[in-house]
């Protein structure tokens, strides 16, 4: 464990908490993409199956359980409890166009052709594009509540911090995983436009308005 990965995990945890608080407090999931939340649940489920047979550390196990519970809890809040506030008309990204290519690519480019390895690779590829429905929704509505933009900033920062973690581990432990690194860079690049808007607007107290 290194400071970059710890900060990244905490940023990720904070993002998930911000989202749950936002939905619970405002009793509304307006502006949130249910499609992205479904993709995140698929990502965590396919990646954390090793909870059954691999124990790495209490921290690792607890965080995986928290991420799984929070992602399914968010889906429950969005599609059941506060279903009436779900923006079904704008949340129209075809997630099958993200899941299928990630699955095909995982079968072709992987470290080993074994079930758990393929599922892990699929989850890495899918996570890199899982935020697209959310960014698509924000661009369609043209704006986002400031708490939603804080959620997105934390979520984008988590994988950006992981990139520093991979650089650190390359020099400190002479290890690297190209699949995770390439997908992590793609994932972070997708946030760049949002990061720019967040830093130039939201941090100045303005609302996040996308240029129409």
């Amino acid at each position: 464990m290194n400071i970059f990965r710890l900060l990244g995990d905490l940023s990720h945890l904070l993002a998930i908490i911000i989202l749950l608080v936002k939905i619970w407090k405002t009793r509304s999931c307006a502006g949130i993409s249910g499609k992205s939340q479904i993709l995140f649940a698929v990502v965590y489920t396919s990646r954390y199956l090793d909870l059954i047979n691999a124990f790495i550390s209490p921290y690792n196990t607890i965080m995986k359980i928290v991420f799984l519970a929070a992602s399914y809890g968010t889906i429950y809040l969005m599609y059941m409890k506060f279903k009436a506030t779900y923006d079904v008309n704008h949340d129209t990204f075809r997630i099958e166009f993200l899941i299928a290519p990630a699955a095909v690519l995982a079968l072709i480019v992987n470290h080993a052709f074994e079930p758990l390895e393929i599922l892990w690779t699929f989850s890495i590829y899918l996570e890199s594009v899982a935020i697209l429905p959310q960014l698509f929704l924000v661009s369609k509505t043209g704006e986002a509540e400031s708490i939603t933009s804080h959620y997105l900033f934390m979520l984008g920062s988590y994988r950006a911090l992981y990139i520093f973690n991979w650089i650190y581990r390359y020099y400190a432990e002479n290890h690297y995983d190209l699949i995770a690194i390439v997908a992590g860079i793609v994932q972070t690049v997708l946030y760049c436009d949002f990061f720019y808007l967040y830093i130039t607007k939201v941090l100045k107290g303005k609302k996040l308005q996308l240029p129409a």
Binding site: D9, I56, N60, N165, H175, D177, A180
Partner: peptide
Amino acid sequence: HQTNISKDEL
């Protein structure tokens, strides 16, 4: 072997 490294990451 490089793959075991990322399996200790979330």
